[in-house]
Design a protein around this nucleic acid. Structure first.
Lengths: 206, 206
DNA sequence: CGCTAATGTGAACAAAAATTCACTATGCGG
DNA sequence: CCGCATAGTGAATTTTTGTTCACATTAGCG
């Protein structure tokens, strides 16, 4: 059975989306040309009409990931202010856990970097971009008084990621058994102890 | 040239050590039977005299990792008390960064788990063991008054890992450019704000 | 000193995966 | 409606890697 003809722009999107979904659910090494092709409904050789090779597909996956993550961050920034925005980011990360789990899967893949160092640079840019924008959120919290002024925004941003990462690791290893949301909520309490401005008569969103 | 004959017990250790060093420095997918064999100074086929296959080698690598990490933790536990022990763990993690970087590399490998789910369980046990022992350190700190009593030891343990993980990720991505030790030190300051007992006239080791 | 079990080796094999290519089908513009 | 550029396909190729096996060598032991 032959697949219907589609414009290359359409196929490129389908292929990148399929590849991301495979990486997110089964890991990078499971992302073979054959599997991506099957998910899209094409023969493996057809992918080469739309991408130069596997690495080009992976490059597109990284772009997709970049958009999703930073989009998520922007949404949190607009939906709440100060400390609450940080809280929202953390909660949304849990919701996006599949895609966020795909990040370390790529970061520590090594299958990639040996052959395509430019992807490593791209990933680094994404990570740097993420922490930088998180630091901006922290600074905004300092300006409106919900975050104590003596914390380093850069550090507070990294720690927010750190409040999530180990939980995601355990969740990943446990095969879904580990109570991800609960552990993240607990970590948020701890995180708030570190970064929240001392409460006078201010009320928290909780 | 033929390698000298060695007892299988010796070879097993050499092979596991070589494999770990490759995983730590170049990643899991770089750990091929051929490369391990070359590092030990044997022909690839010789490895099968000592291990059933690649997965058995990886299993031994996990054991090695387990010993190193928990050994490191035990050393920190004995060298300092309370909060200082936690600080020491963090600093030692930086020193052990290569091997600690090997952990996420394995955790998120997926190349492994699809074929050998029991390795995933083993990795999970290591991670659970690590956080549990860290939680014990936290509890000890609470007993001697250096850690505030209202934090969850489990959460504080996870967060300590989280104070290190994102820094290691950036360091890994930056190719060594990122100031790992500096970022971790900064995060420690933040971490201490969250978990340290309010200072009355108590003096810190810093 | 010689036997035997253990260890080492190269060649061959199998499996998986990325990529190429000659060829086929299709849909859109004129 | 026709033709051509575009998209799709299966088969073949190449590369990499794990594994097996028949044979060679060695070290320890009686």
């Amino acid at each position: 059975m032959r697949a219907a003809k589609q414009a290359t722009a359409v196929r490129r999107e389908q292929i990148a989306a399929a590849a991301l979904s495979i990486v997110a659910s089964q890991g990078l090494s499971a992302m073979t040309v054959a599997r991506v092709a099957r998910l899209v409904g094409l023969a493996p050789s057809a992918l080469y009409r739309h991408y130069a090779g596997k690495m080009a597909i992976l490059d597109a996956v990284l772009d997709l990931l970049h958009d999703r993550i930073l989009g998520n961050l922007a949404a949190a920034r607009d939906a709440a202010g100060g400390l609450d925005a940080l809280h929202l980011v953390l909660q949304r990360q849990v919701a996006l856990v599949l895609e966020f789990t795909a990040i370390p899967r790529i970061i520590f893949s090594d299958e990639v970097y040996g052959k395509a160092p430019e992807l490593k640079a791209k990933m680094h840019a994404l990570f740097a971009d993420l922490t930088e924008k998180l630091a901006l959120l922290v600074r905004r919290g300092q300006e409106d008084g919900s975050v104590r002024p003596d914390v380093s925004p850069r550090s507070a941003a990294l720690m927010l990621v750190g409040a999530f990462q180990p939980c995601a690791m355990r969740w990943h290893l446990s095969g879904g058994t580990f109570d991800l949301a609960g552990a993240v909520a607990e970590n948020w309490e701890l995180y708030r102890k570190a970064v929240a401005a001392p409460v006078k008569e201010k009320r928290d969103s909780q």
